[in-house]
Design a protein around this nucleic acid. Structure first.
Lengths: 210, 210
DNA sequence: CCGGGCCCCTGACAAATGTCACGGCCGGGA
DNA sequence: TCCCGGCCGTGACATTTGTCAGGGGCCCGG
């Protein structure tokens, strides 16, 4: 591509070491790309990026310590010149919007053909935006979360699988209020259960962030 | 390793194309390994293996069409000379036992260091068994599923998140019976909820299979 | 043969869950 | 200014869920 110029410096963040290493191998095959850092936790992204000054960061969404969206925000604040390409498992359309709002330049699902990844990296590095086209449609359809802030919080806390009393205690709310929020969330997600509502909301990325 | 001999032929099965391609790239770096086939669904493993006659198959556990454990069984039956190395996400100790019973020669979690994967492949190919040591201990602790066949079936059906009446209809059982099985499963898993029980059972790989 | 485990069902009960109607507090826009 | 919507809370209610104590049928191993 850019005959002889300095290669694009990459940072990889994925909690599965095998996947991380494999991605590194794949991307290292390209002459104009070089992997300068690998981390396995979201909260290691910024420190490592500070140390290695990558041009592009590939971030997984699901990570311990800090999710990929939050890491995107933090990284954009710390190193504005570093572009972010978010990678995620297929079928979570809601993540896309969140990622873009957080300042990501691209969004790719893990079942895109491998060859396209290097291209995506190059485009992102050159300032373009890259979005998986199949996902874009879905995202516009699902749209932004219909859940109110409190409903989201309650639902998020309910993931652990505790009783209403537990939630009320954890959130310093009345049991009745918790039930109300839960009921509202169930209605808005079209679910029939609390568990169902959690599944739906999680799938659409409505439970991410602070 | 084996100076000049024919390379080990590999089949890769993982539903995420990016991961699959990346693994292919990683393993292709080794001189004595060559990837001859890649599939994205469990039910494509046997047909593709028949066509390409690999020496070792790397199977992910979570796959559409057919899970990795079932694919292992099928592959062992169809091509007994082909060894199987099962790869999975960290933290699902119960899968190990199932995989071994199904005839797998090795079991590796996705957050093992990338370098060890090629070694694991070579050992499996030479007839050795490879098991992630950290996982082995956990597996012995969790042991085999305490759930009875029907309890497993009910729990599996309950994943979709329906009411007891729905389950009863789907399974052609009485509502009371469904509740009894559910209750037993909750007790055996040490959970407090139906949802909780599903999480626990799923984590331990007790919901796999037929 | 008997006992024990699993399966299926019944019926009844307490607890948890989901829904509804209501009122009060606040902040932002018409 | 008033009104509306989000938020918090109350209380009551129907439904669902989880538990328990039974009873019968089946099959297998002692």
């Amino acid at each position: 591509m850019s005959g002889g110029a300095a290669p694009i410096r990459l940072l990889l963040a994925d909690d599965q070491a095998l996947v991380r290493g494999a991605l590194a191998a794949l991307l290292s095959l390209e002459e104009d790309l070089t992997v300068v850092a690998e981390v396995g936790r979201g909260d290691e992204v910024v420190p490592e990026a500070r140390r290695t000054a990558p041009d592009v960061a590939l971030l997984d969404v699901e990570m311990p310590g800090m999710d990929g969206i939050a890491a995107t925000t933090a990284l954009r604040a710390a190193l504005p010149t570093c572009r972010v390409l978010v990678v995620t498992t297929f079928g979570r359309p809601g993540y896309l919007r969140r990622a873009m709002e957080a300042g990501a330049s691209g969004f790719v699902v893990k079942d895109t053909p491998a060859r396209q990844l290097a291209d995506a990296v190059r485009r992102v590095h050159s300032g373009l935006r890259v979005v998986d086209p199949t996902l874009a449609a879905e995202t516009l359809a699902t749209g932004v979360s219909p859940l109110t802030e409190r409903e989201t919080e309650v639902l998020r806390t309910a993931r652990g699988g505790g009783t209403v009393a537990d939630l009320a205690r954890a959130l310093h709310l009345s049991e009745g209020t918790v039930r109300n929020h839960l009921s509202a969330a169930i209605g808005k997600t079209g679910a029939r259960n609390r568990a169902d509502a959690i599944r739906v909301a999680e799938q659409n990325g409505w439970l991410l962030g602070e």
